[in-house]
Amino acid sequence: MKTKSTGDLALIKKMNTAIVLEAVIQHAPLSRAQISEKTGLNKATVSNLVQDLIDNHLVQEIGPGESSGGRKPTLLLFHEKTGYAVGIDLGVNYIKGILADLSGNVIAERSLKLKPSQTENALEHLATTIETLMGSAPASEYGIVGIGVGVPGIVDEEGTILFAPNMKWRQIELRRLLEERFGLPVTIDNEANAGAQGEQKYGAGKNIPNQIYVSVGIGIGTGIILNGELFKGSSGFSGELGHLSIQYDGKPCSCGNNGCWELYASENALLEQASSLGFDGLEELLQAAESGDEQVRTLFQGIGSYLGAGIANIVNVFNPSAVIIGNRMSRAAEWIAPSLHESVDRRTLPYHREKLDLLFAELKDEAAVRGAAYYAISRFIAKIKSV
């Protein structure tokens, strides 16, 4: 009985520590008394647990707050600089990486454009990017706590990329490779899922329980958040809505299907159309549109119309509160928004459209890399809470 009682007490302390730490993360700056009020734990318990968190460099005192009549209370903050995480957005034609503190603030960043000839060496470029970011981390108690990577493909629970059609990859054991190389916890997920997490945590998706994030890059992927949680389906592979068939017997897709949505509404679709005008990159097209090039603006309008067609299907199925357009194409919001809205308005069932917000990613093309870092941060904090 004594052993069981001791075990019960240890479990209760662990649970209460997690509750106190979460209160500090969510509501800081706040005092010990305010933690007690918010959590329902008595003040003596809170005081002891806070001291443990301070001793473990997870919470810090920042000085006195406002007095409500007696002695000024000491305010507490989550010690966000006690560790750092690496987040990576591995795209078909780019690698974007950040070093973030434990609150998700960007400390350092690095980006690299990938030419088609470099795709075979993308894994080595990825490892070099991670090494560079790790090397830029300030000294801290916990150091680098983990690595998160968003990839443009289907990922299983073991962190293996099963299929990335636009990179022509199959069965790449990315988590295993990175964990063996760096000796750190690694989380691998689909890039659109990472983008959805990034926008929900740090961007336009805050406080929106039902939202669909549409990542528009070389291809199209979607991250589905329902009731505040990322929906991944029974096998973990949901969100491949870029491969919705929107044109029967349409263009052949690298996935093996025909007429997929991403063939008509992605950055790749835009670049194919723009090549006849002498443009070969999104940057050039954005500059041309900014300068008033009507032909380029017309191309963006066409992309907006096709985006709207696919989004209308998504809205009719999921009835979300918001659809958030992210990744690189979000930078063209000014020129795709009018035709996008017109297409969605025309094709969506009126009851579904009534309370729908069409948004562009607040983090623009950094949603996925921020979400990837969040994967590593949340995994570390979950581990800390369970210790």
Rank of each mutant, 00 (worst) to 15 (best):
G70R: 07
L75I: 08
G70P: 04
A33K: 07
W261C: 09
G159C: 03
V186W: 06
F300H: 00
E362S: 15
I212V: 15
S254N: 14
G146L: 09
H27T: 07
T119V: 08
K232E: 00
G87E: 10
R331L: 01
I161C: 02
A10P: 01
I62H: 06
M167V: 13
G310R: 13
G83I: 04
A368T: 05
L30I: 09
I381V: 14
R379T: 11
E240K: 00
K168A: 01
Q34G: 07
A10M: 04
E124K: 13
L356N: 00
T298R: 10
C255V: 06
L21R: 11
E22S: 15
E283S: 14
R346A: 14
C255D: 06
E342F: 00
F360K: 12
G70Y: 09
G83K: 00
P320G: 02
L356C: 04
E283R: 13
Q247Y: 09
E199T: 10
E240I: 01
S31K: 07
E141S: 12
K168Q: 05
S47W: 04
Q295C: 06
L114Y: 06
Q247L: 14
A10R: 12
G69I: 10
A139I: 15
N258V: 11
K72A: 10
Y202V: 00
T129H: 08
F231D: 14
L270R: 10
Q51I: 11
A269G: 14
C255P: 02
V151F: 02
G242V: 08
E131P: 06
F237I: 15
R181P: 06
A28R: 00
S136C: 03
T3V: 12
E80T: 10
G233T: 10
A309L: 15
T129Q: 07
D345C: 13
V20Y: 00
L271R: 09
V296C: 02
V344R: 10
N257L: 04
A309P: 11
F279S: 01
H352S: 15
V155S: 07
K355C: 09
C260V: 02
G183I: 03
S330N: 07
A100R: 01
E61T: 12
G308Y: 07
E267N: 12
L349N: 08
E124T: 14
G91S: 14
Y248R: 03
T132K: 14
G70I: 02
H27K: 11
P64G: 05
L75H: 11
M329H: 01
L349H: 10
E199H: 08
G183R: 09
A333D: 02
V20L: 11
G292V: 06
I154L: 13
R176V: 02
G97F: 12
G278V: 02
R181Y: 03
S117R: 04
D365G: 08
M167S: 12
V317P: 01
A122G: 01
R297K: 12
I208T: 09
E157R: 15
A164K: 14
C255N: 05
I130G: 07
I188C: 01
G292F: 07
N56E: 07
K364H: 15
N258M: 06
T348D: 00
F300P: 09
E61D: 10
K115Q: 14
Y248T: 05
